[in-house]
Amino acid sequence: MERIEIQKTYKLYIGGQFPRTESGRYYTLTDKKGKVLANICQGSRKDFRNAVVAARGAFAGWSGRNAYNRSQVLYRIAEMLEGRRSQFEAELILQGETIFAAKKEISLAIDRLVYYAGWCDKYMQVFSSVNPVQSSHFNFSLPEPSGVVAIVAPQESGFAGLISAIAPVIAGGNCCVALASEKKPLSAISFAEVLATSDLPGGVVNILTGNTKELLTHMASHMDVNALVYCGKNKDEIKLARETAANNVKRVFVYDKNWNDPAEQNPYYILDTQEIKTTWHPVENIGTSGAKY
């Protein structure tokens, strides 16, 4: 007799844990032929709010890590992913990709993580400045993470797109709550399992599955979320997101990109969810004769 395969229960990823949705709701994911692939959690507003609490809780620690350390953690995610290629390949194929496209998307996702891992300890040098003010002060400006970022991941590119949206946000020291592609959620949850084993502190990345229409307003209006990244091109959703984001002057970034294009990566994506902080300190003016030598 053929062995019965153990199927995976796909759950949410919140604060480093894998809870089911508190709402108890699900939607069924099927393949092209209508065969049931999995019951996916239909995340709720409450799940989102819990995830924000987890993200906020992780923020001080993650943003306080030194840049070299963050860089290594991102690199570690890439390492973990490389080792589990076959699982992701299988899931992407289940979601309708060809073998060729699946392999390509995974390679790109891993390389993109390495790309942003490398930026962790460099973007600050590119985007900082020392400002030559007129008065006798030392004055410098540097980027700091905005805080908690809500991400509506792209619908089409379920895996590479998700990673493209998350990586620059966490490379910059933010924490995030990402809503995975509704149609292609499998690899998002498996990616959460990779994150859980990658030295990334719980709460830095939280991943929900569910319905964009239902969750978007809650994501955009939440008073403890500092920025919203929306990947897509639905005009009504973009308008709604921007309007509700005004409740707490949230920064909103709309990306309508082909994430499977290897060129769609640059440090300006990191800069988007950064704030520029400027510091002033007086400089005393004694001993100018020193400059003569």
Partner: peptide
């Protein structure tokens, strides 16, 4: 966005 250390309310065109 702006931190003044041992000073306050300073502005300059070069300073974001």
């Amino acid at each position: 966005g702006v931190v003044w250390a041992n000073t306050f309310n300073k502005f300059d065109p070069t300073s974001p």
